[in-house]
C-alpha cells in the first residue's frame, strides 16, 4: 500500500475499525456453487475466426507485395529513362530542327500561317 498522508491515517483507521461486518457465509453456499459448477462446462477458449486467420495470412503477404512494387517501379523507371544520344545523333537532330523551324516561321512570308 502506498504511503498515507498524516490526516488519512486516522481516517483509514476509523473506516477499517468501523466498517460494517460482512454477514456470515451461508454454509450451504459452497455446496450450491459447486453444484452449479458441476452442471456447467467452462467456456471454450476463443478460437480465431476464419476472418482473423485470413487477416493474419494477408499480413504475411505484405513484405513480398512491397518488394514486388519496388521492383516494378524500378523497372519502369529504367524503361522510361531516355538513353543519352551520341554526338552524331545530336548533330542530326539539330540539323533537322533548324531546317524544319526555319520553314515554319519564315519572317519574310506574312501569310506563313495560311499553310496549315
Amino acid at each position: 500500500m502506498s504511503k498515507l498522508p498524516k490526516d488519512d491515517h486516522k481516517l483509514v483507521d476509523f473506516i477499517r475499525q468501523n466498517c460494517p461486518e460482512v454477514p456470515p457465509t451461508n454454509q450451504d453456499l459452497e455446496a450450491k456453487i459447486m453444484a452449479a459448477v458441476a452442471a456447467t462446462t467452462p467456456s471454450e477458449p476463443v478460437k480465431p475466426s476464419p476472418v482473423m486467420s485470413w487477416r493474419r495470412r494477408s499480413l504475411w503477404l505484405m513484405p513480398p507485395a512491397i518488394a514486388a512494387s519496388l521492383l516494378i517501379g524500378w523497372g519502369t523507371n529504367q524503361l522510361l529513362t531516355p538513353v543519352p544520344l551520341t554526338a552524331t545523333e545530336l548533330a542530326s537532330l539539330e540539323y533537322f530542327i533548324e531546317n524544319t523551324w526555319d520553314e515554319a516561321i519564315e519572317p519574310d512570308r506574312p501569310d506563313w500561317y495560311l499553310d496549315f
Binding site: 460482512v22 454477514p23 451461508n26 453456499l29 450450491k32 456453487i33 452449479a36 459448477v37 456447467t40 467452462p42 467456456s43 471454450e44 477458449p45 476463443v46
Partner: peptide
C-alpha cells in the same frame, strides 16, 4: 449477497479457459 457471490464464481468457472 449470496446470489452475487455465486454469480462471481460461476463467471469465474465459465471464464477460466479465457
Amino acid at each position: 449477497l449470496d446470489d452475487l457471490v455465486q454469480d462471481v464464481f460461476l463467471r469465474v468457472w465459465k471464464g477460466l479457459p479465457k
